[in-house]
């Protein structure tokens, strides 16, 4: 299969590379660009570990071809916050509320949470749970993840429920 040139904008940075047309975005992110914060849990779009934002909308990067992402703003976990001193409020809430155990689902969870709060700053508990329906976690039972998103919402939008 002949490779094609693609230009991708990831976390604001320009990247140019040649990929086979059937190469998925998650493969490009992890294997070609070494942005390994995005995880692979299933490669069938069922677990959400590979969730990223494409023009602000959450998608499974294992279900997205790299060539489809051209001309779009790609945000990965590395674009949410990398400095331990300046964590994003969602990241900070995940740490403080105990929403992280093994951590493998965490980057995808945070991307889905960001997608939710960007669109719905004051979600109800049910709205949070629905927003996480595509993200599986095997460790936490979700309770503290839901709580962390509530705390982040309060902090980001100064909302008190």
């Amino acid at each position: 299969m002949t490779k094609v040139n693609v230009k991708l904008k990831i976390n604001g940075d320009p990247y140019e590379l040649a990929v086979r047309p059937n190469r998925t975005l998650v493969e490009v992110l992890r294997d070609d660009l070494h942005l390994t914060g995005t995880k692979i849990g299933c490669k069938t779009g069922d677990c959400g570990a590979c969730t990223i934002l494409l023009d602000g909308k959450s998608v499974c990067s294992c279900m997205t071809l790299a060539i489809e992402a051209q001309g779009k703003e790609i945000t990965t976990i590395e674009g949410v916050g990398l400095s331990y001193d300046k964590l994003h409020p969602i990241q900070e809430a995940f740490v403080n509320e105990g929403a992280v155990q093994c951590g493998y689902c965490t980057p995808g969870m945070i991307m889905s949470a960001k997608n939710l709060l960007d669109k719905n700053p004051k979600p109800t508990e049910l709205e949070i749970r629905k927003a996480l329906s595509g993200n599986l976690c095997r460790c936490t039972g979700y309770a503290r993840i839901v709580k962390a998103i509530e705390v982040a919402s309060e902090k980001m939008y100064n909302t008190q429920k």
């Binding site: 914060g37 964590l87 740490v95 992280v100 951590g103 493998y104 965490t106 980057p107 945070i110």
Partner: peptide, 23 residues
């Protein structure tokens, strides 16, 4: 005391290295 996990900051930033992240 409910001390937050020491490894959480590396996990929420995607920096924690799992075996599959190592090349």
């Amino acid at each position: 005391q409910s001390i937050p996990r020491i490894d959480s900051p590396s996990k929420v930033t995607g920096k924690a290295q799992y075996a599959g992240d190592i090349i």
